[in-house]
Design a protein around this nucleic acid. Structure first.
Length: 456
DNA sequence: TTAGGGTTAG
């Protein structure tokens, strides 16, 4: 009987996965160097992976000391950078370039090289490299050799809005598995809800296509999972299709799928979009373990339906049970206050961002604060907040101040806000109309004509 | 003997 190679079962390798700090990892690495273990690819890959999660610089130093690293080691580092250190994506691409430009016949990218790189290409500034990578896939890999590469390509094109290419690539895949089906469904749902400026016929068609694809998927005997249902329920929300959404909810229960935070959040959102606040709350209330997103959906739901006080109660409950709020939580909570004039409560939420949670308020947070104050007629406070904020205010903030000043009849502040709006958006004709309307209201007709001329 | 693709909220 052949005994296992001791390298693979060495206790130092078991220890590696338990290292929680760079210091302990360095100790194990030192031990591996003295025992000669660090010369072998298998343990080297393990240490490269563990160190890249904890401290990328250390992993890079290890990598730079490896003579003739294999494509396996390149892939490990590339994928770890993209998964754990997205801001360092350029390092992943320079590693990829090293493979391509090595001139070494033994060093070629393989099917494990591409999925993470395509994932990186979904955000700027890397999007433009996607089609280059696609060309490399065709050059270096056998056609249709790997479903992971095919699915990641599909996701890349879907993310760019090139749904036709995504569908073409899907049709090339032999017996698509569950994740590939989910990719295609996600592609349609994402493109349906990604349009700017509201619903149009194309978007509705894409959401309807999600229904059709779901049926096609079931006919191909692939069992949907929670992810599939999240996509299906989101399509129902986009269409305002309550009956289909309820059917999907029942399907989750009937098929024994988990009502996890993703599924429940999409259900809450669907019920809210269909105007069923009660059903949204029932679904929220039944979930024993809720995450931040789930709370955000419910707070936002109460806010949109005009129940600011209820929204704040949920926000308070979140604090009591110890679920950490995020930027969205602060936004929706302040929005909830704004809608029903709970000014002091909204200000308290704003102050808590820094004082309680130690987070620097963002431009968007200031936007909600100014909107809250301006709507309530606290125009001097709103203007003071804009002037004292640490970043440059954008047009949205000045517009909120303008709207508040307009409603509450404060021409002086209205004028200040409009001047800033014109500076920031000289091309927006609405701003000139607002300005001339303001002068017309105070009977300054010579200015009305002057502003109108400037705006044409 | 190790690696890679799919989900929610304003």
């Amino acid at each position: 009987m052949k005994s296992a190679n001791p390298i693979f079962t060495h206790p130092a390798i078991q220890l590696l996965s338990k290292c929680k700090t760079l210091n302990t990892l360095k100790q194990v690495h030192g031990h591996m160097i003295t025992t000669g273990l660090a010369h072998h690819t298998y343990p080297l890959n393990k240490i490269l992976h563990s160190s890249s999660v904890l401290e990328l610089t250390y992993a890079h130093t290890i990598f730079d000391h490896i003579q003739n690293p294999t494509v396996f080691l390149f892939n490990t580092l590339i994928s770890s950078i993209i998964t754990n250190h997205r801001s360092q994506t350029h390092l992943a691409f320079s590693l990829y370039n090293r493979i391509i430009l090595s001139g070494d016949d033994k060093l070629k990218p393989n099917c494990f090289t591409y999925p993470s790189l395509f994932k990186a290409c979904r955000s700027q500034p890397w999007v433009r490299y996607g089609s280059v990578l696609h060309a490399h896939v065709l050059k270096f890999l056998e056609p249709g050799c790997d479903r992971f590469v095919q699915a990641s390509l599909l996701n890349f094109y879907a993310n760019c809005g090139k749904l036709g290419v995504a569908r073409y690539l899907f049709d090339q895949i032999n017996k698509p598995d569950l994740a590939t089906w989910n990719s295609l469904l996600t592609a349609h749902a994402r493109n349906a809800s990604a349009s700017v400026g509201g619903i149009n016929d194309t978007d509705s068609c894409l959401s309807l296509e999600v229904f059709r694809l779901f049926n096609e998927m079931q006919n191909s005997l692939i069992m949907p999972n929670e992810i599939t249902l999240v996509v299906l329920i989101s399509a129902c929300a986009d269409l305002g299709a309550l009956y289909q959404g309820m059917w999907a909810h029942a399907y989750v229960i009937r098929r024994g799928l988990k009502l996890n935070c993703y599924v429940v959040t999409s259900l809450i959102n669907m019920y809210l979009k269909c105007g069923c606040l009660g059903l949204a709350y029932q679904t929220f209330d039944k979930l024993p373990q809720r995450d931040t997103s789930c709370y955000n959906a419910m707070i936002g739901g109460f806010a949109i339906h005009g129940y600011g006080q209820k929204a704040l109660q949920i926000y308070e409950k979140m604090r009591i049970v110890g679920v950490l709020p995020d930027n969205v939580t602060f936004n929706v909570s302040m929005f909830a206050c704004s809608g029903v004039g709970l000014v002091d409560e909204g200000c308290k939420v704003f102050e808590s961002i820094k004082e309680v949670y130690g987070i620097e308020p963002t431009l968007e947070h200031y936007g909600y604060l100014v909107d809250l104050l301006a709507r309530a007629g606290r125009l001097q406070d709103a203007e003071k907040r804009i002037k004292e904020m640490p970043m440059k205010p954008n047009a949205t903030l000045w517009r909120s101040l303008y709207a508040g000043a307009r409603i509450h009849g404060n021409v002086a502040i209205e004028k200040v806000a409009l001047k800033h709006l014109l500076e920031l958006e000289p091309e927006t004709s609405d701003n000139y109309v607002f300005f001339s309307n303001m002068y017309a209201r105070v009977n300054k007709w010579e200015y009305v004509n002057r502003v109108r001329k400037a705006g044409t």
